[in-house]
């Protein structure tokens, strides 16, 4: 997969979650992605960015325009160096939360995007990579 361009944004406060999800939407709007694709990816990014902030103690979001053969897409990598997740499978399950949420963020984000990959290591942090194809 070729990265055509990229941008990295910090996730330090609630306003940053808004900035990142808006940037994703703006990129996709400019590139002529369907409205529903824009809405899905921006919503997934919002969930993952909030997790990085609330559970990971903050992190970064890397936005990439990518190309795979003739296919174009937007990839977003959201990463933190927080406590990590001991049981990823459990965390992915709808309704599982250790906070005051609904436990829908991870499972919901996976349903909203074309590709979803999560890496997490207790004591090291969490990284979620998502892709929406055109």
């Amino acid at each position: 997969m070729k990265v055509l361009s990229h941008e990295t944004l910090p996730l330090r406060q609630p306003e940053d979650v808004v900035l990142v999800r808006n940037k994703v939407r703006n990129w996709m709007q400019e590139e002529g992605y369907r409205l529903i694709a824009q809405t899905r990816l921006a919503t997934a990014v919002s969930e993952l960015a909030r997790n990085a902030l609330d559970y990971g103690g903050g992190g970064v979001a890397r936005l990439e325009k990518v190309q795979n053969g003739s296919r174009e897409g937007i990839r977003v990598v959201i990463e933190d160096r927080g406590p990590g997740i001991a049981d990823v499978e459990q965390a992915m399950r709808d309704g599982y939360t250790t906070g005051s949420g609904m436990g829908l963020g991870l499972g919901g984000a996976r349903r909203l995007v074309d590709e979803f990959e999560i890496w997490s290591q207790p004591g090291q942090g969490t990284r979620v990579t998502i892709v929406q194809w055109r």
Binding site: I36, T39, E47, D94, M102, L104, G107, R111, L112
Partner: peptide, 14 residues
């Protein structure tokens, strides 16, 4: 509520 928002709300599981 925008139609695209209604769709993503359902897909999120809310």
């Amino acid at each position: 509520m925008r139609p695209a928002v209604a769709i993503t709300i359902v897909e999120l599981g809310m």
